Amino acid sequence: MNQINQVAKDVTEIRNTGKGPDGSRILFPHIPYILEEDVLISDEEKRELLSLKEKAKSYDAVVSIGIGGS
């Protein structure tokens, strides 16, 4: 149980500081805030992403292909 608690503290620290144990930037905590923050994508990419919201209304189905991960 101590290891689980330590990992939870470590993840909270990464989310708060944006840095891993070695000092490198960790960006995954920003993913839920991709449109609000200027960290992961440019303003142009944000505009393109938001334009898809309107374009998608004219389609019956959307297929998303990715590499997986988590």
Rank of each mutant, 00 (worst) to 15 (best):
E54L: 09
Y59R: 08
K46L: 07
K57D: 03
E45W: 01
E45A: 14
I41G: 08
L40Q: 04
T12D: 07
P29C: 12
E13T: 13
D22S: 02
E13A: 08
E44L: 09
K46T: 08
P29F: 14
E45M: 11
E48D: 10
G23M: 02
L49F: 14
S58H: 02
K46P: 08
H30Y: 12
T17Q: 00
T12I: 04
S24K: 14
E36D: 15
S58V: 00
S58Y: 03
S24G: 12
K53L: 04
I34F: 13
I31C: 06
S58D: 08
I31R: 12
I26Q: 11
P32E: 09
R25N: 11
T12M: 02
I41H: 01
D43G: 10
Y59K: 06
I34H: 06
P21F: 13
G18S: 07
T17W: 03
G20R: 13
S58F: 04
P29S: 09
S51E: 12
E37S: 15
L40C: 03
L52I: 05
S51L: 01
F28P: 00
K57S: 02
F28T: 14
E36A: 12
K55V: 05
R25M: 07
Y33G: 05
E44I: 10
L35D: 04
S58N: 04
N16C: 01
E13P: 01
K46E: 05
Y33V: 06
P29Y: 09
S24W: 11
K19D: 00
I26W: 00
I26V: 15
K55Q: 10
L35G: 01
